[in-house]
Amino acid sequence: MDQPIIRIQDLRKSFGTLTVIDGLNFDVMKGEKLALIGPSGSGKTTILRILMTLEGISGGRIEVCGEPLYHMQKHGAEVPADEAHLHRMRRHIGMVFQHFNLFPHKSVLQNITLAPMLTKGESRTVAEKRARELLDMVGLADKADYMPSQLSGGQKQRVAIARALALQPQIMLFDEVTSALDPELVEEVLEVMKRLAAETDMTMLLVTHEMGFARDFADRVLFFDKGRIVEQGPPAQLFTAPQEDRTKSFLRKIIAAGQRV
């Protein structure tokens, strides 16, 4: 029996007095493509940010690749993780942000090679070779020496994907990677992600408002509301025959807004 690559147990997260996630449980299997959907404010981004260690947890437990993310062993007892532990765990995980977050003072190529050279001690030659392969994969082979400010939104996001991939993480997190893009640029990014999903065995968690894409992309869809999973299942089932009232009304609203589901 395969071990899950991500295991979330009784996760809780509050911002001050506002409880955003309250007793969340789910597992993700290695290689699984997961779509997280749900109304605004339901905690989807927060979950990804917690997995990327950009946000601490208020309670519960997360395991990544069989090791606790926010806990570590010290003198035989389990204690909260320190920065060194988080640093070690982050090797497994990469993230692509809604607003790209490219390094504006670095060229496209440098954006991609910086981290592999610094964190994995790769030589420039090796790092650049893979960076160019990745740029080729995202269709930007000719833009290596551009600065981010010279790129369109869709191109920036494809560079950001390449940057995350360059570290060869086992798990990739995508937070609404197309929602800051002009409509005509969305497709080029989704295209890249579809190829990625088809060609790699990377585990991928995707937060999206594009139901059509979630359907094509995901093996399993989790519908969130108020920091809990209301319903989950394969896309064909969740989108065509939702069981829960809240899922149904969410999907109705999406369809009313003109999206294909």
């Binding site: 990327m52 640093h87 982050r90 990469g94 977050n101 995350a164 570290l167």
Partner: peptide, 10 residues
């Protein structure tokens, strides 16, 4: 946050 995501040290 981008730095954390690509795992740079402080």
């Amino acid at each position: 946050e981008a730095c954390v995501a690509v795992n740079l040290t402080r």
